[in-house]
């Protein structure tokens, strides 16, 4: 029997393999730069998942915010904090059975609770345009947008206070 491969199924398997692989490297590696690079790959695969769900604007926002913003912050944090020799394994873990049981158990619960309600083939959706998105954000979701904008402002001020609070 010859399996039928569509572009959608190839994209699904590719995204699954790369996202799980990069997440595993983030969790298990002992090299901090490998962690940062794998985290960047994971962020890009999340953007790929958004594209798979036909949300192109969300995918672009993910690349800008995470692969271009948060990852740079992580790299700056590593540069500020790390003073080790290149290649030296410095990240330590305490692998325990309890952690495995909790992580696997929670994932199993999520899968079992949704297994009968989620189809394998997703329904095709139209790409929403930026005009539609703006109408929604500035219409029914305006209070949410204002709240998130306020939260972002508070976060910016908090970061400035945390970094600017030190006096020599």
């Amino acid at each position: 029997m010859i399996a039928e491969f569509s572009a959608s199924s190839i994209a699904f398997w590719l995204l699954s393999a790369v996202s799980i692989g990069s997440a595993a490297v983030v969790v298990f590696t002992r090299d901090v730069m490998r962690l940062a690079i794998s985290l960047g790959v994971f962020f890009l695969t999340v953007a790929g998942w958004y594209l798979y769900f036909t949300h192109a604007f969300l995918a672009v926002a993910q690349v800008f915010l995470y692969a271009g913003g948060v990852l740079v912050l992580v790299l700056f944090a590593i540069m500020f904090l790390r003073r080790s020799k290149a290649g030296e394994p410095i990240l330590e873990s305490r692998h325990s059975t309890d952690s495995v049981v909790i992580a696997v158990g929670l994932g199993f619960l999520v899968v079992m609770s949704l297994r009968d309600r989620v189809p394998i083939a997703l329904p095709q959706q139209a790409f929403p345009t930026t005009t539609e998105l703006a109408d929604i954000l500035l219409g029914p979701m305006l209070p949410h947008l204002a709240a998130v904008s306020l939260l972002l402002l508070v976060a910016c001020v908090s970061v400035l206070v945390v970094f600017g609070g030190e006096r020599e």
């Binding site: 699904f12 995204l15 699954s16 996202s19 799980i20 997440a23 595993a24 983030v26 969790v27 901090v32 962690l35 940062a36 985290l39 998942w49 798979y52 992580v74 944090a77 590593i78 904090l81 410095i90 990240l91 330590e92 873990s93 305490r94 692998h95 325990s96 309890d98 952690s99 495995v100 909790i102 992580a103 696997v104 929670l106 994932g107 199993f108 999520v110 899968v111 949704l114 297994r115 989620v118 997703l122």
Partner: peptide, 27 residues
């Protein structure tokens, strides 16, 4: 995708529980 997202969430949870370095926990 539910299975894939659950695996990713479980991996992240395991990392939070098992990692000792704060950067790795945040990742």
């Amino acid at each position: 995708f539910v299975l894939v997202a659950s695996i990713l969430f479980g991996l992240g949870l395991y990392g939070v529980l098992s990692r000792r370095d704060v950067i790795a926990v945040l990742a």
